[in-house]
């Protein structure tokens, strides 16, 4: 049972906490270690707005373990307003409604049910902006 693996990512997954470069102001998501040549403290935590637009999308009719109940489901690359790209599921939408460039917003949803005796994994998805 994966517990620590998902727990460790709660800030990233639940509220899109990424990083901002203290000197250049560059924002990236998700957080990752500073590069070998960088000052380890040069990236500080930063919460992204969760707003962006669809860079590309697909609808999966064949999925893997853990996502069968959800299939078919849409997946997208989203260009966040702060600059980074992220891969995430889309939700509350149908394929015919989707287009590249469409504005989307982050919602926190159940990503995965790891089984009756396992943890529920929550995380970011995106949907077409409400109004």
């Amino acid at each position: 049972m994966d517990i620590a693996k998902h727990w460790r990512q709660r800030a990233t997954r639940y509220r899109m906490q990424g990083q901002r470069h203290r000197e250049t102001g560059e924002i990236r998501f998700p957080a990752r270690p500073s590069a070998l040549c960088e000052d380890p403290a040069v990236w500080e935590p930063y919460i992204l707005s969760g707003r962006g637009e669809i860079y590309s999308f697909t609808v999966l009719r064949q999925s893997a373990d853990g996502f069968v109940d959800l299939t078919p489901y849409p997946l997208a690359m989203v260009r966040l307003n702060e600059g980074p790209l992220v891969v995430a599921q889309l939700t509350d939408c149908e394929e015919a409604e989707l287009s590249i460039g469409q504005p989307v917003e982050m919602v926190t949803r159940r990503l995965k049910d790891t089984g009756e005796d396992g943890v529920l994994v929550y995380g970011y998805k995106f949907r077409p902006v409400l109004s």
């Binding site: 959800l70 919602v107 949803r109 159940r110």
Partner: peptide, 13 residues
């Protein structure tokens, strides 16, 4: 609720 929604997710929104 959608297939990815539960009391936690709807509470969050």
């Amino acid at each position: 609720p959608g297939p990815d929604e539960d009391t936690v997710t709807i509470s969050i929104e």
